[in-house]
Design a binder for these strands. Sequence first.
DNA 1: TTATCTGCAAACATTTTGCAGCGAG
DNA 2: CTCGCTGCAAAATGTTTGCAGATAA
Lengths: 137, 137
Amino acid sequence: MGEGEAPVTGQRGTRQRRAVSQVLDANDDFRSAQDIHDQLRQAGDKVGLATVYRTLQAMAGTGELDVVKTDTGQAVYRRCREEGHHHHLVCRECGAAVEVTGPSFEKWADQLARDHGYADVEHRLELFGLCPACQAG
Amino acid sequence: MGEGEAPVTGQRGTRQRRAVSQVLDANDDFRSAQDIHDQLRQAGDKVGLATVYRTLQAMAGTGELDVVKTDTGQAVYRRCREEGHHHHLVCRECGAAVEVTGPSFEKWADQLARDHGYADVEHRLELFGLCPACQAG
DNA sequence: TTATCTGCAAACATTTTGCAGCGAG
DNA sequence: CTCGCTGCAAAATGTTTGCAGATAA
């Protein structure tokens, strides 16, 4: 009795899940759900688009994935490297990204919020540019 | 001869445009295109939704409007106060916003880009929180 | 007059959801 | 066996676009 509520961690090890995870491992850059879906099909793994969305969402929820919204509002994902709070410098050409942290920036933001009496402040910071490789190309 | 290409500035003074402009003047906070459309209808001004979108887009293009993308990717607008580059501390409850600039932050961002060899870097920074008024409520 | 603007509805792109069936544990 | 996962297709969102007719200059 009292097995209690299902552990939030309760994810089943399905083929589809594994396939998505694998694609994420294989890519060093940010990809959209649809990109990942295409890549999956090309590799011969048949996975529904909805499932890709659901899986990415689930993984992002546990913090194992980083999500960035592009210019057009599209969400792009990649496996998270650094724990904790950080931002990304993303190449707008190829999706390659560097994770960055800025203690001084964080402090500035906090101070700013305090100065204006805003509570519960969070920020979204994205940096977009051309990576060295894409400049050369 | 040579009237030349039409001046980019060629905007006609239509009732609809004026109505949208008026709503923007009346609001001190960020509103979505649809919000503005609703507000317009309530005020008795019949303006098509597409026209609202087109107008807002045009105004944003000339720099007379600030645009911020919310969490959900929705675009929200308000008349721009400060010229030049700045960011916003927006109340996630009521849309009230403070415009902020951060020279130290800008410098940090530039340096970061340089350190990683990224060119043509731009950043998007939004701060979301609860404004003093909404905390009280 | 005439180029621009407007309104409508249909097109779009991305993401979410309902539901019957499959499959991991 | 069960309950969560999956696939499909349909729905939902928010925004854009094509086109015929209205309108500012």
